[in-house]
Each structure stands twice: as C-alpha cells, then as structure tokens.
Amino acid sequence: MTNNFEKQSIDYPDETIEIASEILKNFELEESPEELEKKFQLGKESNIVIIAEILRKYKEKNLSFPEFTASLQKQLNISQKKAEELATDLKNEVLSLARKSEEITAEETEKPEEPKSQDVYREPIE
C-alpha cells in the first residue's frame, strides 16, 4: 500500500492531547457530548481535532505566532482576544513540550564517551 503520510520532525509527548483538552475546557471551548455527536453526524471535526491539526501545522510549516493565532481564531470561530490568550496558553503548555526529532536523536546518540580501558597488551610508557 502506498503511504500518503509523511513522518514529521516534531515529537509531542503522549499527554499533549489531554493538556490541550484541559486548555479548551478552561476557555469553555470543549463541546458537550451532544454537540460532539451532532458535529460527527454532520461530518464536522471537533475542537480538539482542530487544535491537533493546527498544532501539527504550526510546527510543520513553521508558522509565526500571529499566524498561529489567526489560524485558531478562524478555525474555532472565536474572538481575536480569546484566540491570542488560547495561543499563549497552548504555546506555554503544549508547544514547549514538543521536541524536534533531531534533538531526540542527538540526545539518544550523543552518549558520553566512556574512558578507554587500559590496553593490557601494552606496557605503560614511563
């Protein structure tokens, strides 16, 4: 099967969506179950899915902060002020957790060099 999905260079931690969900709740943007079901029936995406997409695009396309805010305002259909506040919270609590793959790879591969053991086949030079 051909794969249409490109692996991203950003790694979010496992709890990202839970944190984002809490932030949405604080901004009273979390849908009730009925609203969620209604959205699903209409083929619309829920706010948490929209946030996830914007988060992905933010890192993937290197969006600037104003672009990120504008994107939130447009997609969630909220005021600019609310969007700015939401963007700030997301930046501080979610984006700060994200790490680039290269960083992780570097962390994993850059192990401190172990001191070389003494060569037993060689006499010490005095």
């Binding site: 249409n4 490109e6 969506i17 179950p33 969620l36 899915v49 997409e53």
Partner: peptide, 28 residues
C-alpha cells in the same frame, strides 16, 4: 448508558486528535 456513550465519543475524538497531531491526511 448516556454517560458511557458520551465518554466513548470524547475518547474517539481524542484518538483522532492524537493521530492528527503527527499525521497529515492527504486525500488520495
């Protein structure tokens, strides 16, 4: 069970969000 139904829908959305966080869906 309305409560369980709501919980399921919420979890389903979170699953979708988790997938989308890393993957861009492209229309074939």
């Amino acid at each position: 069970d309305r409560k369980q139904r709501a919980e399921f829908i919420g979890n389903f959305q979170k699953l979708a969000a988790n997938i989308k966080l890393d993957l861009a869906y492209q229309e074939p």
